[in-house]
Write a protein that binds this DNA or RNA. Structure first.
Lengths: 230, 230
DNA sequence: CTAGAGTGTTACAGCTGTGTGACAGCCCGG
DNA sequence: CCGGGCTGTCACACAGCTGTAACACTCTAG
């Protein structure tokens, strides 16, 4: 159950297909692109967890794309594995210098690919913000994954945790059920909107009377996290 | 001005010499060994910062030596770069599985060697402090490699020891199974995530009821070592 | 005031994630 | 060569979490 998304950038459909088969067997979700512009669009749109990037590409070369990705704020965290056909050492070095996290020389076996990919993914730092947040005695600490209400630890499930974290990092603004599903559940799930209500309820209950006022209902619109009483 | 010490293990004096010249030009201090026993002696004696290890060695093979080094407590932190003459992918994979931090296929250029070596050294964790740690009657002493629960010595395997040591030096923070594999098993191993569960279980069992509360499950996230009860 | 829409609350059946014991392979010492 | 300790994986059990439906309640338009 990795669920990680891999973007494969190569102009040879056959090679892409080979990789896709290998990765899907290892339970990764695959995206494909055959050139740099297409790749860039997919990266911005789908935010893959890792990129397999061919060194040689028509138009903008792979190494060019890599360099650009490493420069942009929103994409510089995504690890890149370079695929190089030739054994030219210069390429390897330039790839590493530019910021590729690993490179593989063709031909390679599916086993090797998956092993290297896993290794790189493990090494990558999860990009999330790790700063603790505190509001009126309600504290959430991402590092220890702990929530406390006036020093007393709260026992909440994963979904309630994510929901609360989202609210605490997005205070004073109303979110529709639909938006919350997108942000907290993740865009690609099909869930009833009323499900949000239930989790809101669970979260309120866990917060207790001291803090449940923080989560406010905005009739006809959605919910809001605010220190100002409604 | 790196001052880092590099141990070169290869049975070909010519190759060693070539490497030595390249590295000394880049300002590394070099040690040389031509077989596994000699290497082992030097490692224990001089504690190099990194090891360049030939895959093929007379007697004990390089891979054999690597495996042993990664198992021993005092040497498992030292990064290893495998040198392999053949392009057999199996070797690459086995090298990575065993815990080598990188591998280079011969022939390679001095430039490449230095680049890879720098990269590995960059991501290598500076060896932790060897001070004994004690938490609520649970004591771990790196010097004597011993763990005691309220004075009573605990009998735990190497992996459980490393796991506990990591936890005790990184308290109050959640680590995913993936991160634990990275930190405790070593970055390049290919192991099932559920394996972590099993070793957690073994560690908890060894700690006994007095101390197993220290290792807490965070559902959906990973594990945490904390003196605060969940 | 009243119907209807919107929201709160509860119960529950299914599912996912974790705990646990067993087991076969490996390595090392005898 | 054999035996014991470790390790990684699997299968199964189980607890906790999840999404949904159903019903109660509240608000608001008219």
């Amino acid at each position: 159950m990795s669920g990680k998304t891999v973007l494969i950038v190569d102009d040879e459909p056959a090679i892409r297909e080979m990789i896709v088969v290998a990765l899907e067997m290892a339970d990764y979700e695959c995206l494909e692109a055959s050139d740099a512009p297409e790749a860039h669009a997919l990266i911005v749109d789908r935010q893959p967890d890792i990129i397999l990037l061919d060194w040689m590409l028509p138009g903008t070369s792979g190494i060019e794309l890599a360099r650009r990705l490493k420069k942009e704020e929103t994409t510089s965290d995504i690890p890149i594995i370079m695929l190089t056909a030739k054994v030219e050492e210069d390429n390897k070095i330039r790839g590493l210098e530019i910021g590729a996290d690993d490179y593989i020389t063709k031909p390679f076996s599916p086993r090797e690919l998956v092993a290297r990919l896993k290794a790189v993914l493990r090494r990558a730092t999860p990009p999330g913000i790790d700063d603790p947040i505190e509001v009126d005695g309600l504290a959430l600490d991402p590092a220890s994954h702990r929530v406390t209400s006036n020093e007393r630890p709260l026992n909440i499930g994963p979904t309630e945790y994510r929901l609360l974290q989202f609210f605490m990092t997005h205070q004073e603004r109303v979110y529709t059920r639909s938006q919350l599903l997108d942000q907290v559940w993740g865009g690609n799930v099909y869930v009833e909107e009323r499900t949000v209500d239930v989790h809101i309820r669970r979260l309120r209950k866990a917060l207790g009377e001291h803090h449940d006022y923080l989560i406010q209902t905005v009739r006809g619109a959605g919910y809001r996290f605010s220190t100002q009483p409604a």
